[in-house]
Simulated assay, not measured.
Amino acid sequence: MARIAHLSDIHFGAHDPKIVAATEAWLQQHQPDLVVISGDFTQRAKRDQFRHASAWINRLRAAGMKLLVIPGNHDVPLYNLARRFGAPLRRYQRYISNDLCPFYEDDEIAILGLNTARSLTIKDGRINHDQMRLLRDRFARVAVGKTRILVTHHPLFAMPIGKGGELSEAVGRHEDAVRAAAEAGIHIALAGHFHRTYAEAAQKMVAHAGGALVIQAGTATSTRLRNAEPQSFNWLHVHRHDEIELQVVVWDGASFQRGHHVAYFKRNDTWIGQDMVDPGALPGIQVAEKARV
């Protein structure tokens, strides 16, 4: 079993230092096998914000944690046009990671991160055809029994972003990107961007999407809250490529506590979610898929 902590939308520059410290404490206590951070380390891609982000992830590494990280749209300068179009991710590569499409593999899982942040799209994301080829090629060499996980900042799909049922824009080149993920045999697609916790089978979101379970993370540490959701991150237990547990870890105003907990099973090519009885877990944040067994 692989234990993965999935954090997103850290937003140094619009963060709560108390919550940042609490993420460190929680991760050090639980020692995940891998920490995935799906973008937006900073609020405005400023040097001091990147320095704070760099110090934070270096402390996690110094505590013995393995990390897979990708940039988000907030890690591209917004107002400095020369830097935005000339060297959009130079500071990210200097302070966070030079690898914009990192890959991790062990005996149980294989994970590829793809950079969806672009200079021209401001807040929206795109995947280019070189990245789609990389997606196919990387996973073509992965053993059949391993769980295949894709990480992007912007989700590949149009996502519910409000209580009224309105949907976001899908990532650029959406249809081609979804096709590439299906051909690569992706089992789990992790993303962030919308500061909202969400989980759903890809095939229920769009036709011909393959067999992935789409999992969104809320914001881990930002003070920019949306949809009245508190800060949170995801705690995944990947038992097999057809059986995982998702627990939302929620900030309660003083510390991170266990929140909604769902076990997912893939049966007849369909993901089924089963609510787990978890005494003491915080109510409130709900993943999209309810128990249906």
Rank of each mutant, 00 (worst) to 15 (best):
Q203W: 08
M1K: 10
A21I: 04
H187Q: 12
H15G: 00
R51W: 04
T221I: 06
L282Q: 09
L67M: 08
N128T: 04
D252W: 11
R136E: 13
R258W: 12
E108Q: 13
I285D: 03
P160F: 04
G64N: 08
W56G: 07
F256H: 01
I4M: 05
Q28D: 15
T147M: 15
H11Y: 08
E289R: 01
H193N: 12
L67Q: 02
D242P: 05
L120A: 12
K163Y: 15
Y264S: 08
N268G: 09
I285Y: 05
F265P: 02
E245V: 10
A62K: 13
A14Q: 11
H30A: 12
R91C: 01
Y104L: 06
L60V: 07
A21K: 12
P77M: 13
H153I: 04
G273F: 11
F157N: 02
R126I: 02
R136G: 11
K66Y: 06
A5K: 02
Q49V: 09
E243Q: 15
R136A: 15
V206N: 10
E229L: 09
I70W: 09
Q257I: 10
E105Y: 07
F256D: 01
A212D: 00
V238P: 01
G165V: 11
A14H: 12
Y79V: 07
V20T: 13
M132S: 07
G113S: 05
I109E: 02
A25Y: 01
P77Y: 06
A189Q: 08
N73W: 04
Q29I: 06
